[in-house]
Amino acid sequence: MRKLRVGKGIFALPYAAICVIFVIFPLLLLLIYAFRGDDGSFTFANFADVFTNPTNYMALLKTLGTSLLATAICLLIAYPLAYILASSPFNKFAILALLFVVPMWMNFMLRIFALQSLLGMLGIEKGYGSAIVGLVYDFLPFMLLPIYTALVNLDHSYAEAAGDLGANGFKTFLKTTLPLSVPGIMSGVMMVFMPCFSAYAITETMGDSNTSVIGGKIDMLIASRQWGVGSALAFVLLVLVIIVMVVGNVATRARNKTENSALTRGGTL
């Protein structure tokens, strides 16, 4: 019996092999190239370049700001929309929510081309503002969908209980609906914030190379055969991704823990 179990686990082997060859190994290569000088020797010069050359670290800081701004605007637009879509007069029209995500299935570059055509027709200049508009336009569905899913599956008895206990509409929202939709908000933020770092096709099309995100810089470095600095910059991004992942995982676990303990405490009362 035990042997059979092991046998079925074998089906995970091809994927494990792919993970090692195409996921882990390239990241190791990234690390190697980041510490490799032009002559092949070990060097810290690439990382020194990343952290002392203003064009590099400023690009990184600017990208951080751009991503934060785009994510915040997405959240501010998506939450009310998701709230309306998930509320009682509207949630019986499933087609409504679908309409918001249909453009997602169209090629994003064609969508950005369409948006650029519209802004061009309206006489709006290319620049930082239009780059942000482009990011928000492209990523909005990715913020909307997880929040909508969280709100639609919400247990309404909490809000009713809050209302019965005398809380007004706004307080009920603040104390029950909003905290309960935090998982949706978190996945939405994860789906928008990090992808913005790579979205140079959008920021360069809607703005110019000055408004671009760090992904464009890395692409340019690799294309001009500056593999060392490009890899070092990419490696800094990777560390950032891992930090975001760990924080996200810890936060989720902590929340689950408090929820569980709250439930058990409630159960013993």
Binding site: F22, V23, F25, P26, L27, L29, L30, Y33, M190, M194, P195, F197, S198, Y200, I214, G215, I218, D219, I222, W227, G230, S231, A234, F235, L237, L238, L240, V241, V244, M245
Partner: peptide, 14 residues
Amino acid sequence: YNAEIVTAVGFFLL
């Protein structure tokens, strides 16, 4: 969750 540009550089180096 990895930034796509990091994945891209990894594939490129490979």
